[in-house]
Design a protein around this nucleic acid. Sequence first.
DNA 1: TGCATCATGTAATCAGTTACATGATTTT
DNA 2: AAAATCATGTAACTGATTACATGATGCA
Lengths: 185, 185
Amino acid sequence: MALEHAILVSLLEKPGSGYELARRFERSIGYFWTATHQQIYRVLKRMTSDGWVDVRDVQQYGRPDKKEYSVAGPGRDALGAWLQEATEPESVRHDLAVKVRGAAFGDPAALITEVERHRQAHTDRLAHYLTGEARDFGEPTAGGPLDAERELQHVVLRGGMAYERMMIAWLDDVLATLAGLDAGR
Amino acid sequence: MALEHAILVSLLEKPGSGYELARRFERSIGYFWTATHQQIYRVLKRMTSDGWVDVRDVQQYGRPDKKEYSVAGPGRDALGAWLQEATEPESVRHDLAVKVRGAAFGDPAALITEVERHRQAHTDRLAHYLTGEARDFGEPTAGGPLDAERELQHVVLRGGMAYERMMIAWLDDVLATLAGLDAGR
DNA sequence: TGCATCATGTAATCAGTTACATGATTTT
DNA sequence: AAAATCATGTAACTGATTACATGATGCA
């Protein structure tokens, strides 16, 4: 399991509340690891009692008080240990691939709209990533030393973009294949 | 949930026992949807009582008897309905991406071996796909009509290959980035 | 007045994984 | 004699999703 570890990384990048973490899991970290607020609160509770994170009550004016979490020593150690553990490359889960194979036993043409919808979603995500890249990594850090945190965030973002581009190209391949079946019917 | 649907597709392609399905989920279908035999037996039981599949006892000589499952009318209908349902593009889960971002707070160089291990796994899978492609889709069906089942299986396989190629290229990018940090230290 | 945002949680359910269990045959 | 393959399952646990629940502030 890596939700704990994803939370540790996110809190090391910047301490925050459960609510804030949930928001980050909708963007940034969430592009390659999803989690809902319910999950996050539950895990934060466990991590607190395990001493992986520290909590601090932060009073706010004009909005509810929050609990700010930050990584404690044991949490940092746990992350370090996990980084060196071997984890298996995860297999993808594409229900769209199941649908494509299933289309042979139904109406292949009926799948076209669904495939186009997915293509649009991936195009949108790619555009979103590109905007983020221009904003956060547009100009190089002025002659300074290489910032590891920044460089590593950037390479992960490039991975997300490579994934979206690959998906768009593949969905075009799927659409061409479906059209071919329809023509040769 | 799509395990039911993945099983329906697999049984439409060819009826078989729970054991045989489990084996198929280690290859073919399993490249984009995983399931263990325990899961499969449980779901097959439910699908049988829901009337989605029919069971037939098959006696075998020299090996244990088996139950052969095949898709029944309601199962076919359920698949048809699902094909037209809109499903959200699933977000990827890459613990390696979490590790890469986490490396900023540990020793980035220590991650190199792990990234190389993943790269090797993806190279192996790609080679495996290529062998399968040459075997199953090597020569075109002799002038005959387009076989929808075959064409759709092929486009899904091409998707798997595109994914592996993308991952290999991205992991090279990660390795170059890690090396750059190490050099600029 | 109503909706959106900020903020934190509980409870129930469903899906998935790991461990355990059995037993025949075939191959090394 | 031991290990691998074929074949089917149960039980316990962990992880993830969905629904429910509360309450303040700010904006339209």
